[in-house]
Nucleic acid binder design. Structure first.
Lengths: 119, 119
DNA sequence: GCCGTACTACGATGCCTATCGTACGACCCG
DNA sequence: CGGGTCGTACGATAGGCATCGTAGTACGGC
């Protein structure tokens, strides 16, 4: 019935269902510094951000790759809005599957970043 | 009551200092199912275990590789005791660096294992 | 001194992945 | 329609890594 809804622009992207998200996959996704940085920016923002709004030290095609890894491992959700691809953390799904994990990871990342900036 | 000094048998193994442990490294180490399994067994045991006491589905040489990855990334500490190589979790260091992270990770792994065993 | 056990070292293999550049497709705006 | 922006697809490359088998070293016990 193609209700009005958001109409996210025809092209949809494959996401794992909540139950398909695997811990190893999440950890692997976050074990790359670039991807961890993306997730941290996303968590700090609290709202959806387009891919181009992130400050990552790689080219656009590499960036695309990292966003895909995050999506395929269930860490983020991506939706097209016009030419922009909007990204949000799958916080609800992750919190339900692994209570407290995401916050611990973000805190650990922040903690480590702090230690580096001091000294 | 033997002498207080452990006398860990001449050969020592290189470990990262607490401050050298990196979050990415820890996550990478735990993103492999075999290594996560080792860490879970170690956490459940609460005492030092020799390499051969673990129930992992790989050959011994592969097992050696996984233990080394865990050690080099600061997740476990390894000490020779005779021919046996004893392993312990570096819980104190990890808790100090990343408060709550290890417990969240272990809980998440347990949670996921539970979900798999049910159904 | 010799043997068995515990673990390692090394080399091979096949796969995965982070990176890039270039060429292309989708979409909005004027 | 045409141009510009956003992101993708594809191929190439180089490095990492999980796995194994075999051969070898360290150590304790007999």
């Amino acid at each position: 019935m193609t209700t009005a809804a958001p109409v996210p622009s025809s092209r949809d992207l494959p996401h794992p269902a909540r139950g398909e998200i695997r811990l190893e996959g999440v950890l692997h996704a976050l074990s790359d510094p670039v991807r961890m940085r993306i997730v941290r920016e996303l968590a700090a923002a609290g709202v959806a951000l387009s891919c181009s709004q992130f400050d990552v030290p790689v080219t656009k095609s590499t960036s695309t790759h990292h966003f895909r890894v995050l999506r395929e491992n269930g860490v983020i959700r991506q939706v097209y809005e016009g030419t922009a691809k909007m990204n949000v953390l799958r916080r609800d799904d992750l919190d339900e599957l692994f209570p407290g994990l995401l916050d611990s990871l973000l805190a650990a990342a922040a903690h480590q970043a702090d230690r580096r900036n001091e000294t």
